[in-house]
Computed example of a mutant assay.
Amino acid sequence: MIEPIVSDPAVERYLPQIADAVGTDFAAYRNHIYRVLSYAVHFLGDDPRGREHIAFALVFHDVGMWTDHELAYLEPSEAVAERVRAQHAPHLDAALIANIIHWHHKLFAFAGPDAKIVNAARKADWIDASLGIVRHGVARKQVAAIEEAIPVLGFPEVLMRLAKDLRHGNWVAGLWRVLSRVYKI
């Protein structure tokens, strides 16, 4: 069974860095982070280095949508993460953080450095972002248990609203921008 993670020292330490930017979407985004972290730790196993890097990266992985008002948010999210990492967490591997963020929507396995860590985060985000349609071997019952412990709080609707708002009311154009600029093969 996957243990829901509802609090993590790294997440709680860095969440305040983005709270103002995320605004009223904060609770939905926070819960998304914790659901993804729960799945990622399941895939990662007992790897404290990997967990700390994933927890840090997850705080920032989607934040470019809010900070830069940009649907092609990977690079802006990486930039925010790097600014905070350099100032507050220089012990973390900058390249690993960037890879976790940059490749978290990759369709197929990442094959670069620290692939196990990057892929744990990637598979975990796919489970949550797809509402459990893509499960990477996780049982539907386990997804339901994680969502019960860490409620979704309308996060998919937040993403659809942002896609519409950031493309001036045209959610189709927003969705196309995300599909063409964020998702990777």
Rank of each mutant, 00 (worst) to 15 (best):
Ala89Ile: 04
Ala95Pro: 00
Ala111Asn: 13
Asp93Ala: 09
Asn99Phe: 03
Asn119Lys: 03
Lys123Asp: 15
Val118Thr: 02
Val143Arg: 00
Arg83Leu: 13
Ile100Trp: 03
Ala98Glu: 09
Val134Lys: 13
Ala81Asp: 11
Glu82Phe: 02
Ala94Gln: 10
Gln87Asn: 12
Ala94Leu: 04
His91Gln: 15
His104Pro: 04
Ala120Ile: 06
Lys123Pro: 01
Asn119Ser: 05
Trp103Gln: 12
Ala144Asp: 15
His88Glu: 15
Lys106Glu: 11
Arg140Pro: 00
Ala95His: 05
Ile97Ser: 01
Ile117Asn: 00
His102Gly: 11
Leu131Glu: 14
Ser77Met: 10
Ala120Pro: 06
Pro76Gly: 05
Phe108Cys: 01
Ala111Asp: 13
Ala86Ser: 11
Glu82Ser: 11
Ala139Pro: 01
Ala124Ser: 11
Ala124Met: 08
His91Glu: 15
Lys141Val: 13
Val80Leu: 14
Arg83Asn: 10
Ala86Asp: 09
Ile127Pro: 06
Glu148Asp: 13
Ala89Trp: 01
Ala115Phe: 06
His136Thr: 00
Arg122Gly: 04
Ile146Ser: 01
Ala94Thr: 06
Glu75Trp: 02
Lys106Asp: 06
Pro90Ala: 13
Gly132Leu: 09
Trp103Glu: 12
Ala115Trp: 02
Arg85Gln: 04
Asp125Ile: 02
Gln87Ile: 05
Ala79Ile: 08
Phe110Asp: 05
Glu75Met: 11
Ala129Met: 13
His102Leu: 13
Gly112Trp: 02
Leu107Val: 04
Ala145Arg: 11
Ala121Cys: 11
Arg135Gly: 03
Ala95Gly: 12
Asp114Cys: 09
Ala98Ile: 03
Ala129Pro: 00
Tyr73Leu: 10
Ile133Arg: 14
Pro76Lys: 06
Ile133Gly: 03
Lys116His: 13
Asp125Phe: 02
Ala94Gly: 09
Val118Met: 03
Gly112Phe: 08
Leu131Gln: 15
Leu92Asp: 07
Gly112Pro: 03
Ala129Asp: 04
Ala121Phe: 00
His102Ala: 07
Ala111Gln: 12
Glu78Leu: 12
His136Pro: 00
Tyr73Asp: 03
Arg83Cys: 07
Ala79His: 08
Val84Gly: 01
Ala124Ile: 09
Arg85Asp: 01
Asp125Leu: 05
Glu78Met: 15
Leu96Pro: 01
Ala120Lys: 06
Ile100Phe: 06
Lys141Thr: 14
Arg122Leu: 13
Leu96Met: 12
Trp103His: 15
His102Lys: 10
Trp103Met: 08
His102Thr: 10
Ala121Glu: 02
Val138Arg: 01
Lys123Gln: 15
Ala129Ile: 09
Asp128Lys: 06
Asn119Leu: 09
Ala95Arg: 12
